[in-house]
Design a protein around this nucleic acid. Structure first.
Lengths: 345, 345
DNA sequence: CTGAAAGCGCTTACAG
DNA sequence: CTGAAAGCGCTTACAG
């Protein structure tokens, strides 16, 4: 087939001396149509000889499918992607491949671009379904997609009709906070992204619950919203502003993400504070680098690959119209204790 | 259109009282067919009202295109992707979007899987073209693709017929080595991936040239091949074995990648060596984390986003049959001096 | 057990 | 200036 015209089902049919319908039936193992063993064998032989494989795009047009699922992922050239999404892509790819689907990255730099890309995906039927990340309250993406394109959200939503895959973020943050409390900390800061994100909301809730159960007061002044969503710089700025603002500084900080935690460590260093002796730090995600920074980061491991695996699995069932009841899957997290949180005070 | 059947070109034609051919001509601005201003306007109005957008997959079948380009990227769940690929995806997405193409990730865990995926891409016409990374000598991927599917390689090849986008890796490694020499180093180790990769070969060449021009001897014992391709662990093991093997230890090390460099720093620490005082370290890539590790890493910045941008641009021209002469594009690099290489000895 | 025909949603010569 | 027809490469009822 090198350099030649691509071989089509027609070529196979001609070479095998049967109709294209027969070739198709053999290849798809249609139960409706019984094919004699010898015909089937002849067809299969020719298929193998010619190296024929049905064109996905042609099957797709006929079946109304693109065999493509889209991952709506933030991609800023300057601000490199969080390892979280890397793992997610990897998990998505895994299921997709198993099921004969492909994964396309729907990259965007802000919410507006994301919305326009999703709208385009709907209009041009670019993909069969979409995976969405980081849901917010009144998420503007849902109305664009609802009823038009199947989608699954990684995270929590307030709309019970939407399929989601999420961690128990309340529990995760609670465990992390309890760990710090057990080490003797009483003033624990919390660095978070905007609370309109359910993930931030849930983790704040877990943080509060842990304090409450330990009989510690919740102090609003120990909360900081990172101004740049995620990222080292954002964490750095958040921690710096916190340290400058507070009369009595915190002895520990729980950061919503490893990159934010890294930024906190930098800010602390700049203020002459040593981690973990002067400031205990705990992050979220358990990204690869978290084990290799200085000091190694205590973190709540989020299994992004697993989240994405389940999400795509669910999405593919939606695409096939298999799921009726909206499902919500919960993936466990895991506290990884390293040096940055220190030991008993 | 919510929940209803998707609107097709037929619907538009009917609503506008014209033929589908006319709608298509209007939408594609065909120069062959002159359409009267009023017809065009009427069609455009209906298109807007109905929110019609031609289905990509249908256009594709007709034009023999998938409007999809594939990025063949290593993806091991356990070993998270290097930031290099992140940036590359981002660059690829940028051009693709500009030109109305989509990007699909062709993930694989080893060379065998990569080959089988590429073969599948050829047979099933999954994509219109492919971007390949990290070329080797006698690269087994080229024969699979050549003549069957357009492709562009990020890196250097020995086959002049293949389109490539690359850095001048000889020059880059030379500049980095010269910098270390200028700081007073005479025993500079080089941690590299297998030399069958052209990138490793070229960087070794630059390293050698710098030594030679400075009148320093090239010592084979200062070379180490990382056993795990890239990654912190691989760098750690490489450096450890080097330190244990050598009687007289190096005062500096050039690592082929930031993750390898990070591993070298860890190994050094374990052996009681301080970076940069006891050991100067220089990496490659300039990944985001390189500015935030301890100490901040001196590194040769590789602009993966730009590499991918040019590669996809070139690939799209190949797909359209525009490029005749095989092209090779070279993207500049940049030495970023931070703390890990230290100062004058 | 197998084939002829219709059709998925477009675009493109070709007529008129 | 515009439309009828063919066709991209498949799959799927439907005949026979």
């Amino acid at each position: 087939m090198k350099n030649g015209k691509a071989v089509t089902i027609r070529d196979v049919a001609k070479a095998a001396g049967v109709s294209v319908a027969t070739v198709s039936s053999v290849l798809n193992n249609r139960s409706q149509t019984r094919i004699s063993a010898e015909t089937r064998e002849r067809v299969l032989k020719v298929v193998k000889e010619l190296g024929y494989r049905p064109r996905k795009v042609a099957q797709g047009l006929r079946k109304g499918l693109t065999y493509l699922i889209g991952l709506a992922i933030p991609l800023q050239p300057d601000q490199p992607l969080s390892p979280f999404f890397y793992e997610a892509v990897s998990g998505a790819l895994k299921v997709a491949k198993e099921r004969g689907w492909m994964v396309s990255i729907l990259g965007f730099k802000d919410r507006d671009e994301e919305l326009s890309i999703l709208q385009k995906a709907v209009n041009q039927r670019l993909v069969d379904g979409v995976i969405l990340f980081d849901p917010q309250e009144n998420d503007p993406r849902f109305p664009v997609l609802k009823g038009n394109l199947p989608f699954v959200v990684i995270g929590r939503t307030d709309d019970p009709e939407i399929c989601t895959v999420d961690n128990d973020n309340v529990e995760a943050a609670k465990l992390a906070t309890q760990h710090l409390i057990r080490l003797g900390h009483k003033r624990i800061a919390f660095v978070h992204v905007p609370l309109s994100y359910f993930t931030a909301k849930d983790r704040l809730e877990g943080y509060k619950q842990a304090l409450k159960e330990a009989g510690l007061p919740f102090r609003k002044e120990l909360l900081v919203e990172a101004d740049g969503y995620y990222g080292v710089e954002a964490g750095y700025r958040a921690m710096l502003s916190l340290l400058e603002r507070l009369k009595e500084r915190p002895t520990a900080v729980l950061a919503m993400d490893d990159t934010l935690a890294l930024g906190c460590i930098q800010a602390a260093a700049e203020k002459g504070l040593k981690v973990p002796t002067d400031l205990a730090v705990v992050g979220f995600n358990g990204s690869a680098f978290s084990a290799h920074c200085e000091p190694p980061l205590t973190t709540v491991r989020i299994f992004a690959e697993t989240l994405a695996y389940y999400a795509v699995d669910m999405l593919l069932r939606l695409v096939r119209g298999e799921v009726v009841a909206p499902s919500r899957v919960t993936v466990p997290t895991q506290l990884i204790v390293r040096k940055s949180c220190g030991t008993m005070r």
